[in-house]
Design a protein around this nucleic acid. Structure first.
Lengths: 108, 108
DNA sequence: TTAAACTTGTCAATAGATGACAAATCTAAC
DNA sequence: GTTAGATTTGTCATCTATTGACAAGTTTAA
């Protein structure tokens, strides 16, 4: 659960005994590029999250957590951000939601 | 502190009595584009964070928290991610750091 | 040593972000 | 209500980064 997203995909794939070529076909990408993704040399495109969930019958909500958690972690690591960034992020999500709620009310 | 990053810039700017054109010059961008940034219609490029910190004499670490917190919040809001994403992100940052620490040890 | 699996390098094609500028709108002072 | 400065909006060419694709290399296990 602490692995990078690439390591996570590799885990899923090898557990099911798929080759890179087989999984790549399910995800509609090149096996060479899937290799790079698993080794952290390319990004996994969020547009393919649903295909990945289908391929391994995963809960989509949990997959999003894994995926975006990984994205955020990489950014924070790269820019040496303090963990307070995450607290601020949570506040800001709530702020965005409150804005939306306010707008929905006005449209009544 | 809960505002979006665009609102935050606008706050800083108007507090100091700068016009869009003036601040834009300091940040080396077009005033029209700065307007879009303040109104959440364009992204603020992370490469300009240092210029922004200088323009308002801000603590760079705090500015990063504000900036990346905003980025993460937007993503989470857009993809409707649960707040658990942030907990996972924190675990993963620590994982990345532990990897690095391990590698540093091997290189001795 | 052979075949399949995997890795790596490269590059053209594509998509997305950015800079630039014109035009419209807003605001406040006169 | 006119004017000037400030801001907003729309558009588009250009730049940049990402992606797909494929060739060539290495590793692995039989």
């Amino acid at each position: 659960m602490k692995a990078t997203f690439g390591e996570y995909i590799r885990q899923l794939r090898t557990d099911k005994g798929f080759t890179l070529t087989e999984l790549a076909a399910l995800l509609k990408l090149d096996s060479a590029n899937l290799s790079k993704i698993e080794n952290g040399k390319r990004e996994f495109d969020e547009k393919r999250l649903d295909k990945l969930a289908n391929a391994f019958d995963l809960d989509f909500e949990k997959l999003k957590i894994e995926y975006f958690g990984d994205q955020f972690a990489k950014k924070m690591y790269a820019y040496n951000c303090s963990t307070e960034t995450l607290i601020v992020a949570e506040e800001k999500v709530n702020y965005l939601k409150s804005i939306k709620a306010k707008q929905a009310k006005l449209e009544l």
